[in-house]
Nucleic acid binder design. Structure first.
Lengths: 180, 180
DNA sequence: CGATCTTATGCAACTTGTTGCACAAGGGGT
DNA sequence: ACCCCTTGTGCAACAAGTTGCATAAGATCG
């Protein structure tokens, strides 16, 4: 039940069209929630029906025309309520760890390459996030409550990538000993 | 497409019934993949139909009777193939980070308590994993390839919990400054 | 011997996320 | 004028995960 709330948050930060939201989900929102444009359009429809958001009046409302949405008071109330509810962390589901465990049973042939590939991807992601941190949250922008919180969320994304790169490096060190 | 492979791996490690698998998913398998008993029974049916596993002959095959499964050669081949395929890491979807970002917009009232609650849960999980590491992977059991890999997977679970506890502590430190 | 608890398997309905494709308007090039 | 690329919205079918409930056998206890 998180996608509608992700959309409400994004729209409160800035009213947008479906495609704009998709792009924001691919970029900055992506470090804590991902979604395809299909999910977003479907959810925008539901949120509008529920009276949580509305389409801003457009000059030419027809297919293929941009449609901007903004959050209505009911939507803000729902989001506020959701943030206040308590919710347990979901158990992990990570395919790479699973595949490594499977490799322990059926053999690790070629697996070091896959680990190296993932390491490169996570290093790139880490660099991108660190760039965003420098650009969007220089020390002078870490004073207001909202900026401090947004920075904290980005720090979560950064530290998570750091965990992956560290773990992959540890894993590869073991492979280099025993697999070459 | 990972659940069937998680089940194949578990069954290769030890043939089990549906409920036994469920318990194993709640325990040791849980640090890299989670599943409910419903998912498991459904998937066992599909895997049996596909000829990847088979039920061991039971004395009294009727409803409510334990049914053990073992992996067939075709199942092992499928798992081997899956481990060798390359697969990109999935983008993050974390509700707590999302809720914190939402809190930056609608207010953080009561959020520190939620962070403390999560911190306690992650600390408990971390302790449990560390206990498992001590019991299941003492230094003398880190020599064979398979044990080394299984230990590495557990290390992933441990380091991930360590990331969460560290991030939550950092987050709470900020809250104590600005929110009390 | 009947009530109730535990173990064990499973169906059905629902929600969430993914994939592939269709449709429409406008701009740019040739 | 025509083609193709980009922007933008959207349907439909499918795959994966969740929730609530039903069923049945065996053990335990009064």
């Amino acid at each position: 039940m998180s996608l509608p709330h992700a959309i409400l948050t994004a729209l409160l930060e800035k009213p947008s069209s479906g495609l704009e939201l998709t792009r924001r989900f691919d970029r900055s929102i992506g470090y804590f929630w991902s979604a395809t444009h299909q999910q977003i359009y479907r959810e925008l429809g539901k949120l509008e029906q529920a009276g949580h958001i509305r389409a801003l009046p457009a000059p030419v409302p027809s297919r293929g025309q941009k449609k901007e949405y903004e959050v209505l008071p009911a939507g803000r109330a729902e989001l506020t309520d959701w943030v206040r509810r308590s919710e347990d962390p979901k158990p992990i589901r990570d395919a790479l760890l699973l595949r490594l465990r499977a490799a322990a049973v059926v053999g690790t042939e070629g697996f070091a390459d896959e680990l190296r590939r993932h390491l490169a991807l996570h290093r790139a992601q880490l660099e991108e996030y660190r760039g965003m941190e420098e650009r969007q949250f220089p020390p002078e922008r870490r004073t207001t409550e909202a900026d401090r919180l947004r920075h904290l969320v980005l720090r979560g994304g950064i530290e998570l990538e750091r965990f992956w790169t560290a773990w992959l490096e540890e894993a590869l060190a073991g492979f280099d000993d025993g697999d070459r």
